[in-house]
């Protein structure tokens, strides 16, 4: 991943030297041509091509925006409802992510979508403890987070 991006930058600079065009537009043309060359040579790399990961990152961002809007509407419904019949709960969420930044990203995403807040990480960093404002079925909530956010993050980090 890092090697491919570095290679793409190097190809862009080579293009700038070849065309003697040391401007931002020349760099951009070289970068796009380098992207094309890397896509052509994709069988020779050990890892997946980095554009797939960039696309996964864009998809994760869109998913986050969608979830943010949906969850805010839900919390607005709760706040404006005349009767308070919500069910707050703490629950444990087992996670499969390993890296520090993945866990931080997942916790931030869970906290930023209203209705759920990460309150604690277990010492072996395999479980997140989450407080939810209104929950009917704990297993359903766990599956929901696992299938949306965690899957999207794993999609980004898969080599």
């Amino acid at each position: 991943m890092a090697f491919q991006i570095l290679l793409n930058f190097t190809l862009a600079f080579i293009w700038m030297f070849l065309s003697s065009n040391f401007t931002a537009s020349g760099f951009l043309i070289g970068f796009l041509l380098g992207m094309l060359a890397i896509i052509m040579m994709r069988r020779f790399f050990k890892q997946r091509i980095y554009l797939v990961r960039v696309w996964a990152l864009i998809k994760l961002t869109l998913l986050f925006i969608k979830e943010l809007i949906m969850a805010n509407v839900q919390v607005l419904k709760l706040a404006l409802s005349p009767k308070l019949n919500m069910q707050p709960a703490f629950f444990a969420l087992p996670i499969e992510l390993k890296e520090e930044w993945e866990i931080t990203l997942l916790s931030s995403l869970i906290t930023l979508t209203p209705g759920t807040i990460v309150v604690h990480i277990s010492d072996d960093a395999k479980t997140l403890y989450i407080h939810a404002i209104d929950i009917d079925d704990v297993d359903e909530a766990i599956d929901d987070i696992k299938n949306s956010f965690e899957k999207a993050i794993m999609e980004v980090t898969k080599s």
């Binding site: 520090e100 866990i103 931080t104 931030s108 990460v118 604690h120 010492d123 960093a125």
Partner: peptide, 12 residues
Amino acid sequence: MKTNDMIIQFTA
């Protein structure tokens, strides 16, 4: 009692 401070350490 030592808690896991992963999030604040990475963010810092």
